[in-house]
């Protein structure tokens, strides 16, 4: 859209050039639109991923009582759950990151406070994404000497 020609101007229109109201942000492109779309798309996927995660870990078998190292080893022996957790990790962290970014924008009035909070947010997201990804793909079930998984008993 052009900022100089005002095609739909009514009788009281202020030309976009002289108006103090800037609808079109400078240089950020469609970032906010894409982030809005991402929140909705990731939300729908997360519904399935997180509900599935909670159901398998809390409702099946012995529920929370059955969660221990051997339980995790059993799940991550399968590429299915590795992929599931990987998707859940990235989508939940990015969705949450984006949501909290909006909240920081809404409530902080001083630039300094805003940048400090956003710095903490970026640092925590990087930590969670890098650590979480490494943990899924470098997991070693055979750290447990009593493991009965075939990969370990074969060693």
């Amino acid at each position: 859209m052009s900022t100089t020609t005002n095609y739909h101007a009514g009788p009281d229109a202020v030309s976009a050039k002289t108006s103090r109201y800037r609808r079109v942000s400078k240089g950020r492109g469609n970032f906010e639109l894409w982030s809005w779309v991402f929140m909705r798309a990731s939300g729908v996927l997360l519904l399935v991923l997180v509900f599935g995660h909670l159901f398998v870990n809390l409702m099946l078998g012995e529920g929370i009582h059955g969660v221990d190292f051997a339980f995790v080893a059993g799940k991550w022996a399968s590429p299915f759950w590795q992929t599931w957790d990987m998707l859940m990790l990235w989508l939940a962290e990015l969705h949450g990151f984006n949501g909290v970014r909006t909240i920081i924008n809404d409530y902080t009035e001083k630039d300094r406070t805003r940048w400090i909070l956003k710095g903490l947010l970026v640092a925590s997201a990087l930590l969670v994404l890098v650590l979480g990804t490494l943990v899924i793909f470098t997991f070693d079930p055979c750290l447990d000497p009593s493991s009965t998984l075939s990969v370990c008993t074969a060693r």
């Binding site: 190292f69 995790v72 949450g96 909240i103 925590s124 943990v135 070693d140």
Partner: peptide, 27 residues
């Protein structure tokens, strides 16, 4: 609720990472 889940996720990924330390630490 969104902020609460986000804060939980931070702690959750850190404690799950204990599976890389040792089975005893995680358990």
């Amino acid at each position: 609720s969104g902020v609460l889940i986000f804060l939980f996720l931070f702690a959750h990924v850190l404690d799950t990472a204990l599976v890389r330390v040792s089975p005893e630490a995680y358990n």
